[in-house]
Design a protein around this nucleic acid. Sequence first.
DNA 1: GGTGAAAGTCTAAGACC
DNA 2: GGTCTTAGACTTTCACC
Lengths: 146, 146
Amino acid sequence: MEELDRQIVQLLVKDGRMSYTDLGKATGLSTSAVHQRVRRLEQRGVIRGYAAVVDPDAVGLPMTAFISVKPFDPSAPDDIADRLAGVPEIEACHSVAGDENYILKVRVATPRQLEELLARVRSLAGVSTRTTVVLSTPYEARPPRV
Amino acid sequence: MEELDRQIVQLLVKDGRMSYTDLGKATGLSTSAVHQRVRRLEQRGVIRGYAAVVDPDAVGLPMTAFISVKPFDPSAPDDIADRLAGVPEIEACHSVAGDENYILKVRVATPRQLEELLARVRSLAGVSTRTTVVLSTPYEARPPRV
DNA sequence: GGTGAAAGTCTAAGACC
DNA sequence: GGTCTTAGACTTTCACC
């Protein structure tokens, strides 16, 4: 990716609501040139979208956990990610190398909800689970150095 | 949190660039009422900021891994998170309950860079590491159901 | 790929309920 | 907390280079 695009992406990752005017000032381009570049970056899928970053505590989801899952029947076709796609508590699902097949990142309100979620994940996906509870998060969603 | 605020947060998590005008239409409030509420949500820290969501592959960081770390000397004061705060490859750092003390999520370009990063993490923070490489990510950063 | 200008839309602040 | 109003800023499109 070219230097100017890299700069624009970097700026938008740090502040997704930065105006095209300000992006132009920061990069030395005109407003419309920036606008065009951003549109291309969106079309090419480099920029997937924009999101408000929310404090999970403040919206009633103070409990985070990582759930590693492994199928009961390792010979069955792996449709675990699909089976879990509709579970709203799951924020991320990564297929991984190692002892387990997937790592899920989940957010819930209470330990009781985590217990209920684990039961749901096990029965929906036919997996055993190993859960690591997050105690605190010094930082998260830090902008990548693009 | 109140229903209208919940709605606004939900909408902004899905589209961080949605205009106040459109937020007003979606919630049945006037533009300025929405604007006021958003400003309050930002001030109260419910909304921490806004970010462009970027495709890691497209910006040259196709490799993701989780690194669990444990201090060599468990009796030393725990300043691991601080020591690692300046490492740009680390996207998130969670203190966790369980066998290890922290889980880091990292993004790099190549296996060789991951190797170099692991060495850096170990020596900077005085920890042993256990690394789980991500093979693919069916979904990630899904908007929480606020 | 870039610029610059015009029309339309949105933001932000103030007065008022 | 809410609405309405208004000035100014920003976005978006277009003709042109």
